[in-house]
Design a binder for these strands. Structure first.
Ligand SMILES: [Mn+2]
Ligand SMILES: [Mn+2]
Ligand SMILES: [Mn+2]
Ligand SMILES: [Mn+2]
Lengths: 196, 196
DNA sequence: ATAATAATTTAGACAAATCTAAAAATAATT
DNA sequence: AATTATTTTTAGATTTGTCTAAATTATTAT
């Protein structure tokens, strides 16, 4: 089993997430996401490339290799299982769990994680509705409709939160909206700031 | 709140434990306990001294300051709470918990630890019978009798394991002795290897 | 197509934590 | 007390992950 430093794990996980939106991941995007200077990103990408975790060509950005993706999924699994634990067993609110899970995710003892998974009853999603990869890294993302594309009057159930910034999560708290809430679009106002 | 690196925390905890037996802690003893070269110990002791965590004078060893002890007790608290969690909630055996807790103890979020404590029902001891410091760092060590000094025929209850090496723990497993077991000294054989 | 701008990499430096080998201080033996 | 052995510290080097400033490459605008 390959061992990674906390820094390496944070890179792998961040590349995984950025890849979902941008396909190929730019050095600057990683720098922004990790609050790290672009020069440092280049250094680390070379290292992860040599370790076979990312495919990287200078000036063209990077993508995870098959092994890199496997590793990233392991980290995402740990992160979300701990978030579930903090929320369901320790009573943390959904805006608090992320910060703590950010540390717990780096304790990488396979037996620990699989026993935690069982203890939690093999949950399928974390407190934000994000799917938890299983022990083999398999992830099940159910078919969903984005709120922005939901037509007026239709009733829907909230299953996942796209923007998980503290502001959005607290706003949802105030409006008493959580995972499982039934909602209905009263009026669809086109928000210009979504487009630019 | 002061923040420490994983390395610093491991030093503080180890100094705390060694202090219990030796009073003043020698550089070499720390080196042995931490599997680290004596030269590295000296470097770190200077650093911890500058931070006010240990009182250190060259060639004379070190002791924890009041703040250093406070910090060490926090680490011990986290370690033992996680051991209890692993044992009671996840079903780990008592010889497995230490290794995992060695990593978990470094996740230092106060709210996490206090909520974990409550979730576990404010346990007084870890799976090896060692006392768990409370949120204020207060530690309650009940009066006990060492097995070596227990007189023949007397019945006693096992409350704590002194030597927690895997060998000893597995031997106790085999003999079906655990915390809470009632035992009786049949015959007291003086073991020479205890003295040299 | 050239020039200006933005993104990325290289070069050189630094702090943290470790190491080995050599020097210095302390402790133990004769 | 002098010598020897042990412990500890200093000196100098290494690895990891980061930084800033300068150079290079790619992109955008004129
Ligand atoms: Mn993290
Ligand atoms: Mn989440
Ligand atoms: Mn540790
Ligand atoms: Mn223990």
């Amino acid at each position: 089993m390959i061992r990674f430093s906390v820094a390496e794990e944070n890179y792998l996980k961040t590349i995984y997430h950025l890849q979902h939106t941008s396909g190929i991941v730019a050095t600057n995007d990683l720098a922004t996401a990790l609050h790290t200077a672009p020069a440092s990103i280049t250094d680390m990408l070379k290292k992860l490339s040599k370790k076979g975790m990312v495919s990287y060509k200078a000036y063209y950005g990077c993508t995870l290799t098959a092994t890199g993706t496997e590793q990233a999924l392991g980290i995402v699994r740990r992160h979300r299982l701990w978030e579930h634990f903090l929320s369901q067993k320790l009573g943390f609110s959904w805006e608090e769990v992320h910060e703590v899970a950010e540390e717990l995710e780096h304790v990488s003892n396979e037996k620990l994680i699989n026993k935690l998974d069982a203890f939690l009853g093999f949950p399928r999603t974390d407190p934000h509705g994000d799917p938890i990869p299983d022990a083999k890294g398999k992830i099940f993302q159910p078919r969903q409709v984005s709120l922005a594309t939901l037509s007026e009057k239709k009733i829907a159930v909230v299953t996942q939160i796209g923007n998980q910034s503290p502001q959005v999560l607290e706003m949802l708290d105030e409006k008493n909206i959580s995972i499982g809430s039934r909602i209905q679009v009263i009026k669809n106002i086109h928000l210009m700031n979504l487009w630019r």
